[in-house]
Design a protein around this nucleic acid. Sequence first.
DNA 1: GTGAAAGCGCTAACAT
DNA 2: ATGTTAGCGCTTTCAC
Lengths: 340, 340
Amino acid sequence: MADTIEDIAKEAGVSASTVSRVLNNAEIVHPETRARVRAVIAAHDYKPNIFARGLMRSRTDSVGVMVPNFTNPYFMAIVDAIENTLAQNDTHMYLCNPRMDPQAERDYVEELLRRNVDALILIEATPFSSADNHFLNLKADCPVILVNEHHSQETPHHIVRCDQAPGIREALRYFVSRDMRPLALVNGSDSYSFTLKENIFHEIREEYNLSKEDAPVYNLPGSPDQEGIVVPAAALCVKLAKSPGRPRAVFAANELIAAGLLQGALSAGLRVPEDLAIIAVDNTFLSRIGLSQLSTVDLRPEDVGRLTAELYLRVRNDRTSAEGPVRETISSRLILRSTT
Amino acid sequence: MADTIEDIAKEAGVSASTVSRVLNNAEIVHPETRARVRAVIAAHDYKPNIFARGLMRSRTDSVGVMVPNFTNPYFMAIVDAIENTLAQNDTHMYLCNPRMDPQAERDYVEELLRRNVDALILIEATPFSSADNHFLNLKADCPVILVNEHHSQETPHHIVRCDQAPGIREALRYFVSRDMRPLALVNGSDSYSFTLKENIFHEIREEYNLSKEDAPVYNLPGSPDQEGIVVPAAALCVKLAKSPGRPRAVFAANELIAAGLLQGALSAGLRVPEDLAIIAVDNTFLSRIGLSQLSTVDLRPEDVGRLTAELYLRVRNDRTSAEGPVRETISSRLILRSTT
DNA sequence: GTGAAAGCGCTAACAT
DNA sequence: ATGTTAGCGCTTTCAC
């Protein structure tokens, strides 16, 4: 059996409460006593029982993190950065994978709150297109941090996000300024993120007075975040290769779509970037290991994750929540590699 | 404040212990009382406090999972399958990411045990080449499941693994039987997994009486599991393309190496598979989204994960540990796609 | 500055 | 079959 606080107290010649004080508000105990108690704690490698502690304290040194998908490198890069920062602060992480199911999301959140997590970190929870984005108004008695939540609605929660728009504009302008036309958008559908891309694309189209023929939009069927998207994207590229108004440049809404386009280009005999230039979005390791070194809009998952964890560490100490929610937005940016 | 067991007891007109019995061994309470208590529980959506419970019970409905790396698709595919199965059994998961640091592994394990996890699932923990594979003899008062642990040493723990050898042999024989020579192995180094590949390669070389020229081995410097391996692999491929005894077929020790080879082949003007055939190992989604649809030895991460979770669910109920550790080994297999 | 005592919400042993 | 009692290991008043 592990040591209890009594064992430590006895050996240090003090009472349990004093040990408890050393553990929690070390300041208010006499320096000498404190040192003695600490020595015993160290000698026994004593760690207070998590459950007894959880019963009284509100803090549990654990946070709940929810991520839509374990195999999406963009999300996992965020989680990786969060975990890295938290681990350095002795905070552990429940990781949940609701698989884009809103009911599963709800259940997980409830369960995490029951486990008294010190914070709830929700990464791109709930399809943004969904009418009732239920987490915006989630009631929780711990800080809630929404990661990459892009709704502008009021919410009492903290938000850390990477704004895709600047990088996307930069990419499109890059193509336009080099007269690479037609310039196509190959997009997914049914999500905030894809709608945003389409809106920006239209905006640029108007800004530069491009015709629809010079700036066509293709929407891929199916779920663009799943690897299944690769095959239709490849097929589309093969079809486009043969068409008269073949695009000179493509802006791919994500890296999986870009991977499909690259496969298609290869099998259709198109050279990249000479015949077809491609820029994607995300900048996970996928863009560095595929067929070509992919040019990409960097959504900076590592920074997003690190900022999220740092925000948590801050609001855990201050009761910043009283001062209203924190918003942190970082900007995406274009990274050119060999597909442009 | 949330309901306590007393609240429920009062409302159902019974004592707290009866409610507790309904919660734990429903059988021994009178059907009518049970029904009444259950109704109140449901009406209040009452959930017992995790911490109070943890203090008494040993079970916490949580397991600790340790994975070497969050961004490796092979590992995450295993974790995904584990989580999927566990979630259906109301078991939550701490996920730890020791980043291949043995000390971090130790610390995490200790912390997880402190949190009374119901099981410890260690995925490819500790570099297998390490002399003291400390987890083989880990003392824990919960079941420990080692995933893809390949040491044959005695251990009191359960093991679930996918045996790479059959698939690797199948792949090499595939090449040999089609007279694709030279047949090269492009390998990493310093891990059980890479040593195994080299051993099997040598074995096949002898079996078919291949000369060293016809069956060369290339060891890539650096860490072959990191994306950094792609560039040297590409460079190697370019170099080989120009060499007189250029390989006709390559067995790549993993998918990242294969990705590099594909990049190299493309830039050197080698057609795949006409000029150069490639088979890799792992079968994550990477093999389906790269330049080409990669032929690969399937290490069946989804099956490994599912079997792991199912094993846990079994040993959680039976006290199977008394009957000695369980060994489950599934076989890898060759999957041919367009790089062969 | 420190100790004694109460109690967090639950389960398990002991009654009945 | 059910209620009563006694803790689990800790934190937190409240005394001193």
